[in-house]
Simulated scan of single mutants.
Amino acid sequence: MLYLIAEHLGFPGVLNLIRYLSFRTGGAVATALLIGLIIGPKFIGWLRLRQGKGQPIREDGPQTHLAKRGTPTMGGLMILTALSISVLLWMDLANSFTWVCLFVTLAFGSIGFLDDYDKVTKASHKGLSSRIRLLLEFAVAGFASWLVIRQIGTELYLPFMTGVSIDLGWFYIAFAAFTIVAFGNAVNLTDGLDGLATMPVIIASVAFLIIVYLVGNVRFAAYLGIPHVPGAGDLAIFCGAIIGAGLAFLWFNAPPAAVFMGDTGSLALGGALGAIAVTSHHEIVLGIIGGLFVVEAMSVIIQVFYYKRTGKRIFLMAPIHHHFEKMGWAEPTVVIRFWIIALILALAGLSTLKIR
């Protein structure tokens, strides 16, 4: 919105700064952070008043989690509010990629909200049926992928190789939709401990802020041998808003958490990262940068698959962060060590930009 106003006025004086993507990205971080910190206390109080008992806690989980009873959920609404206002304020309203990513984020957040609402009202951790939820997610992701490929094409680019791609044709829509849905649910599965999902999402957003900026710049893209996507650079503003909103939420989500993001936040943030990766032609790199989320999701898939066929468990409890809790690791130990892993994987993902 500010960009549209400044452009209409001809970028006079200090408004000329808005012309620069780096300035608007910094503005998006600061705006989302400030909004989140301001609305946080009242928002949490409102959630606590409305929800009463808060998010249901699994009886079969680590016993230390029972102390979290009464903590309100749906804190993702706070993240989405700060993120949306910041993006709309600093984005170029003519950039269709930003609109698509915002659509996926808010739509996935709405699906997560329905799931959280069902859990809270029924005092059960089950929520919506997985079939309905996946159907809604794939409908949103499929439509978004169709919108994106009309501008970026259907090539799947391979990391570590310069200019090597596979044209998937219309199958790319299914692949892109799967990427968005899979990552949304992977982040959702990771969100089980205070701050566990929030910081890795912030780390992944920092990595993709760099990637989309480079992908959107024709000179940098040519130098690094990565696909150039005109207009993708504006997604740096979107990544910045995620970072700012995530930091604000972490302020209240730090142990002991005053609020949980719930499916409202985790599905939305995971879907957002998936959409950004698809738009920037870095879907495979997302699997490296967000490797922690991939491992969390795979631990659940492996556990369920193995248990159904043998009646035995590979992990003491899935997702895998609960396995380490059952082994005796304190919750802050699990969280901080997983943060370190997320940072290492993000650096490994960024290295693909040069190792080609």
Rank of each mutant, 00 (worst) to 15 (best):
Ile79Thr: 06
Ile79Ser: 04
Ile79Met: 15
Leu80Ile: 13
Leu80Asn: 09
Leu80Cys: 09
Thr81Met: 14
Thr81Val: 15
Ala82Leu: 10
Ser84Glu: 02
Ser84Phe: 15
Ile85Cys: 10
Ile85Thr: 14
Ile85Phe: 14
Ser86Thr: 12
Ser86Met: 13
Val87Ala: 12
Val87His: 12
Val87Asp: 14
Leu88Val: 11
Leu88His: 06
Leu88Lys: 01
Leu89Arg: 07
Leu89Gln: 06
Trp90Tyr: 10
Met91Val: 14
Met91Tyr: 09
Met91Cys: 10
Asp92Ser: 11
Asp92Trp: 08
Leu93Ala: 14
Leu93Tyr: 13
Ala94Asn: 13
Asn95Thr: 09
Asn95Met: 12
Asn95Ser: 12
Ser96Asp: 09
Ser96Ala: 12
Ser96Pro: 02
Phe97Asp: 08
Phe97Trp: 07
Phe97Met: 06
Thr98Pro: 05
Trp99Cys: 05
Val100Gly: 02
Val100Asn: 02
Val100Gln: 03
Val100Asp: 03
Val100Ser: 04
Cys101Lys: 07
Cys101Gly: 13
Cys101Thr: 15
Cys101Leu: 14
Cys101Ala: 14
Cys101Met: 15
Cys101Pro: 08
Leu102Val: 06
Leu102Glu: 04
Phe103Asn: 03
Phe103Lys: 03
Phe103His: 00
Val104Arg: 07
Val104Trp: 07
Val104Ser: 08
Val104Gln: 08
Thr105Trp: 04
Leu106Glu: 04
Leu106Met: 12
Ala107Cys: 13
Phe108Gln: 07
Phe108Leu: 04
Phe108Lys: 06
Gly109Ser: 09
Gly109Met: 09
Ser110Asn: 03
Ser110Leu: 14
Ile111Asp: 00
Ile111Ser: 02
Ile111Cys: 00
Gly112Ile: 10
Gly112Phe: 08
Gly112Gln: 10
Phe113Met: 12
Leu114Phe: 15
Asp115Tyr: 00
Asp115Val: 04
Asp115Ile: 00
Asp116Val: 06
Asp116Met: 08
Tyr117Thr: 06
Tyr117Gly: 06
Asp118Trp: 05
Asp118Gln: 14
Asp118Leu: 13
Lys119Ala: 04
Val120Pro: 01
Val120Thr: 05
Val120Ile: 15
Val120Glu: 01
Thr121Val: 10
Thr121Ile: 11
Thr121Gly: 00
Thr121Phe: 05
Lys122Tyr: 04
Lys122Trp: 00
Lys122Glu: 07
Lys122Ala: 09
Ala123Phe: 07
Ser124Glu: 09
Ser124Ile: 05
Ser124His: 01
His125Tyr: 13
His125Ile: 11
Lys126Asn: 04
Lys126Ile: 04
Lys126Gly: 00
Gly127Arg: 02
Gly127Gln: 00
Leu128Met: 15
Leu128Arg: 01
Leu128Cys: 01
Leu128Gln: 02
Ser129Arg: 02
Ser129Gly: 09
Ser129Tyr: 00
Ser129Gln: 03
Ser130Leu: 08
Ser130Gly: 10
Ser130Thr: 10
Arg131Gly: 01
Arg131Glu: 00
Ile132Glu: 01
Ile132Cys: 02
Arg133Val: 01
Arg133Ala: 03
Leu134Arg: 05
Leu134Ser: 13
Leu135Met: 15
Leu135Gln: 04
Leu135Val: 10
Leu136Thr: 03
Leu136Val: 05
Leu136Lys: 02
Leu136His: 02
Glu137Asp: 12
Glu137Arg: 00
Glu137Phe: 01
Phe138Val: 13
Phe138Met: 10
